[in-house]
Amino acid sequence: MKRFAASELFHSFRHNRSAMIGAAIVAMFVVMVSIGPWLVAQDPYDVAQLELMDSFKPPVWLEGGVPQYLLGTDGQGRDVLASIVYGSRISLFIGFTAMLGSCVLGAALGLLAGFYGGKLDSVIMRIADIQLSFPSVLTALFLMSAFGTGADKVLIALISVGWVVYARIVRGSTLRESQKEYVQAARVSGLPNRKIILRHVLPNVLTPLIVVATIQVGTFILIEASLSFLGVGVPITEPSLGLLIKNGFDVLFSGLWWISVFPGLFIMLIVFGINLLGDFLRDELNPRLK
């Protein structure tokens, strides 16, 4: 059954050009962040490797560029390309991990709320409501201003804003599923709640979760970039793509465009790829539009 769904999905994937492009972009990034560090000449996080005298070199095709620094260097003599490779690692790691965290937390809370109902349900859903009345960027920005910078803190902030959507979906599906006869029957037959949830309820809500999760990785990458740009995200010594843009912003007006423009292009590319995949999954897995 599962294999069939997968192969049907795979079939339509092979006939969907944008989905293939999206997958190719994401795959390229995965390759880049996993083997990239061995390919670039410099570890931009190791300050001992930086050569101050090589700061502000333009990309290689411009006058003054050197082959050693393909996309130029920043004010610390950091290779822009190497920074992008390392920065993408951080951006992708944060986006993906925060999504997993939100998904697990949100699904757990949604299941609890939907399955048990009552007070627990209304407390969880009230919190979700209040949170939804705020744009997530603003909430994350505020949380970071209280926490201080750091990748771990960015994760906490993102998970704090990300769980709500899962909780709502899962709670809704759980409510629907638990009305169904087989779940009622299982309950009557004395099957422990944990088993009912795992065996009957959870599999039925997986599909919408996958769609939301895919798109959320992209959203999280963008939010992290925004936070880092405002100086409340990751620390300056280990810059993510967003922080690279910020570092370049200060000198953009003096014509040193490459420090900020390239990292931005890479953010756009990866989020675009993820969104293409997300669109495809939504169209395929969401019965309403099919």
Binding site: I245, F253, G264, V271, I274
Partner: peptide, 18 residues
């Protein structure tokens, strides 16, 4: 429109300024 969703708005602002 997908590109519009995917790009960081603040970065776009910078590029426009430039």
């Amino acid at each position: 429109s997908l590109v519009g969703i995917s790009l960081p708005g603040f970065w776009l602002g910078m590029v426009l300024i430039y």
